[in-house]
Write a protein that binds this DNA or RNA. Structure first.
Length: 235
DNA sequence: CCAGACGTTGTT
DNA sequence: GTCTGG
DNA sequence: CCAGACGTTGTT
DNA sequence: GTCTGG
């Protein structure tokens, strides 16, 4: 999975780590959720953190709501699926994070866990991105050269999805899928390599330096975007 | 040929 | 139950 | 991922 | 746009 993550690493550290710059200082994020605009590094502009909406909308979709389903793409099939094939070949991105959340069903309800590196260092999840324009609405005969083009421009939507694979041993205790984490020396190839080389990176990241711990159910609501949701709680 | 889907997760 | 919004 | 809505008519 | 199902 990966349906929620954190990104509270300070701006300077992120800029140095990814060799990219923010246009404006990002707020520390403890509860990044689908549907939100979040910083990613795209292959066509790797020197910048760009704000894209989480939930990939394929270019041929007739409704932007399609994106709410496509927050993840399976590594095993991403090169074949019509929704992802083109993006995989031409539009890959890095999705910076410093932890992600998993929910485990228990007797008393769902218990959220945070998974992160032991030192909370940031990492890149493998992502794909797209650019979508609303279908041309039927403009009347008198509406050429009007506001239509400007509207479409304004409504152009850039979106991304996170690639998932089998979980490592640590995460497999919590969940059956895990987002693909790229090693730093793999990021260049993910962004700019050919399809075969990029596909070879879609494996499971080892859990040696990772940890998982229960957190408050406050994380359930994306509105609770504060540091309390990364604090360990007793089970 | 046209119509309709195109996806993931988890759960049953 | 299912869909939308965050 | 979870939370929260899920509808219409008419009136202000 | 492209693929699958009828």
């Amino acid at each position: 999975m990966c349906g929620r993550y954190s990104l509270f690493t300070p701006r300077e550290e992120l800029e140095e780590r990814f060799d990219a710059t923010f246009e404006t200082s990002p707020e520390p994020r403890y509860n990044c959720a689908p549907g939100q605009r979040l910083p990613v590094v795209t292959n066509d502009d790797p020197g910048a953190f760009r704000s894209l909406k989480w939930g990939l909308v394929p270019p041929w979709a007739d409704d932007r709501k399609v994106g709410s389903n496509l927050i993840n793409a399976r590594a095993e099939t991403v090169r074949e699926k019509p929704s992802f094939r083109e993006a995989f070949e031409r539009r890959r991105c890095l999705v910076p994070a410093d932890g992600f959340y998993e929910w485990v069903q228990t007797e008393g309800g769902k218990q959220p866990y945070r998974v992160a590196f032991e030192d909370d260092r940031p990492f890149a999840m493998a992502g794909l991105w797209e650019r979508w324009k609303p279908p041309q609405t039927q403009t009347g005969l008198g509406d050429f050269a009007g506001g239509g083009a400007a509207d479409a421009e304004a409504e152009t939507l850039e979106t991304f999805t996170v690639v998932t694979a089998e979980p490592n041993e640590l995460v497999s205790d919590l969940h059956g899928r895990m987002s693909v984490i790229l090693a730093p020396d793999e990021e260049e190839t993910w962004l700019h390599g050919d399809g075969d080389d990029a596909a070879a990176l879609l494996d499971t990241y080892p859990d040696d330096e990772m940890r998982a711990y229960p957190v408050s159910t406050r994380v359930n609501s994306p509105a609770n975007d504060d540091s309390s949701v990364v604090e360990p709680v007793e089970r």
